[in-house]
């Protein structure tokens, strides 16, 4: 099984849909980061708007609740001068494919140019990309436990700003890897961009089987796993994991896998601490670390806008190129 690269690129090899990091070339990821740099510089100025997507309609189609991701996608689209429609569609477990397809068909009829999709099922963004009209781009804003590629790109952006390059970097991703689409995208991105080593640190209950095959080394002990690490990415722990017999309690989890000041000292002195948010203080990370000098958690949020502007404008440009 391989991700259909053709599905994500147009006939000229340019980005059309952004569905997964897996299968992308290093050059494309670097292009996204470089484009995002230019947006980030200008975003810091007083006038933040660009006319790049003027006249385009972007629909944020969120089948799963989100605040930050939705907000940054909205801001990114607005700053590119696009018209934005955000839809929060509560989904039930029994909702069927046809309703997903019908939703897409109805919105297509309103002549939109891009869907930004979040869905609780793995493969939903793929499905939409395969069934939508050819002029529409699809950006995956998180599908089930599969991927969250724009989040991974903003994390890469944040890492590159702090560390300049990926070669030689050791990165530890700590926590619920099993259910994390963010972790999967990050692992692929870090490997494609040439990081030295990607580690995952978690109890066995929160690791997918044969996780090594994704290109990571596995640790079950935080102390051992944090040695010589340059970047620490903490993942959010969902409360419902306690009820499904994956973990005994939040306090035991924090003792074993929570990032405290003491544990942070094990990593390299200049290590940065990241978290895709929202944070459970005292569960996966202590407040002093989250708010401390090594934390870049809020920079991640800021960078999210520039990175999403880059991805949206690139995907839309490839569509324009095709239309001409």
């Amino acid at each position: 099984m391989f991700v259909d690269k053709d599905l994500q690129l147009n006939s000229l090899g340019k980005l059309k849909h952004f569905l997964s990091i897996q299968g992308q070339e290093q050059s494309l990821l670097t292009e996204i980061l470089n484009t995002a740099e230019s947006f980030a510089d200008i975003s810091a100025q007083q006038v933040k708007k660009f006319p790049l997507l003027r006249g385009k309609t972007i629909v944020n189609l969120f089948f799963e609740n989100s605040t930050r991701t939705l907000a940054t996608f909205e801001l990114a689209a607005t700053r590119l001068s696009a018209d934005v429609l955000s839809m929060n569609i509560a989904t039930s477990a029994t909702s069927k494919g046809e309703s997903l397809l019908d939703t897409i068909r109805n919105l297509e009829a309103m002549q939109v140019d891009m869907f930004v999709v979040r869905h609780s099922l793995s493969g939903a963004a793929h499905f939409i990309a395969q069934h939508t009209a050819p002029h529409i781009s699809v950006i995956n804003a998180g599908d089930g436990q599969h991927e969250h590629p724009t989040q991974a790109m903003l994390d890469m952006f944040t890492i590159r700003r702090a560390k300049q390059q990926f070669s030689g970097l050791r990165i530890a991703i700590v926590g619920d890897i099993l259910h994390s689409r963010v972790a999967r995208s990050q692992v692929h991105a870090l490997n494609i961009l040439g990081a030295e080593e990607v580690r995952v640190i978690a109890p066995k209950t929160l690791l997918p089987v044969e996780v090594e095959s994704l290109g990571v080394s596995v640790y079950h002990d935080l102390t051992a796993g944090l040695k010589n690490v340059d970047v620490i990415i903490m993942l959010r722990l969902q409360k419902e994991r306690m009820n499904s017999a994956l973990l005994p309690s939040e306090s035991e989890y924090f003792k074993c896998f929570g990032l405290s000041d003491e544990k942070l000292k094990i990593a390299n002195k200049d290590a940065i601490v990241m978290h895709p948010g929202p944070i459970n203080r005292g569960v996966e990370i202590s407040s002093s670390v989250a708010d401390g000098p090594q934390s870049v958690i809020l920079q991640q949020v800021t960078n999210g806008i520039a990175v999403r502007m880059a991805i949206m404008s690139m995907a839309m440009q490839s569509n324009n190129a095709r239309a001409e």
């Binding site: 493969g123 436990q145 991927e147 999967r184 089987v209 044969e210 095959s213």
Partner: peptide, 15 residues
């Protein structure tokens, strides 16, 4: 199938 492929694609596995 609970294996490398399901893990990669985030599909819940049947062991």
């Amino acid at each position: 199938h609970e294996g490398a492929m399901a893990s990669r694609y985030g599909l819940s596995g049947i062991p």
